[in-house]
């Protein structure tokens, strides 16, 4: 089975890094969509299905917290698995993200192994 991913981060360099790591895993990749903020992500999700989302928190226009709140209220999208990848270390925000049922919370700087491990756990396959 080939999986579809979405990376939501205002940094093109971070999107590029995560994209590269996803391609290094043993899971079959059908497509990797990119969005620069939560609003763009939601717009794309209105007509695209994805299997896993990597989400930053601090972004302009719509941040990761707002994105999660809207995603969980949408009957078509509420069960989508999301992994947060952020510099944010404040416990109250981490707790809020957990309440919003994110699957994992990775802090930057992340390692390629952290990304491959989370993909392996959530989608199966083995690490590259």
């Amino acid at each position: 089975m080939a999986y579809k991913f979405m990376i939501i981060d205002d940094s093109s360099i971070v999107r590029g890094m995560i994209k590269k790591i996803i391609k290094m895993t043993s899971v079959e990749v059908a497509e990797i969509f990119e969005a620069a903020n939560g609003k763009e992500g939601l717009e794309q999700l209105s007509n695209k299905w994805v299997d896993l989302i990597f989400l930053d928190i601090n972004m302009p226009i719509m941040n990761g917290m707002e994105f999660m709140e809207k995603l969980r209220l949408d009957p078509n999208l509420k069960d989508l698995p999301v992994v947060v990848v952020s510099t944010e270390g404040a416990q109250d925000r981490i707790d809020r993200m957990k309440e919003l049922k994110v699957k994992d919370y990775l802090r930057k700087p992340f390692t390629p192994e952290q990304i491959t491990n989370v993909i392996s756990i959530l989608l199966g396959g083995t690490n590259a």
């Binding site: 601090n58 510099t87 981490i94």
Partner: peptide, 26 residues
């Protein structure tokens, strides 16, 4: 820009702990 972002996020957590919330500007 991302280097300064990651640096700032980690420095403020190290200095002030995880119990203090900060807003980071882009």
């Amino acid at each position: 820009k991302e280097m300064s972002n990651v640096l700032t996020g980690n420095l403020i957590t190290e200095f002030y702990g995880a119990d203090v919330s900060f807003d980071l500007l882009p």
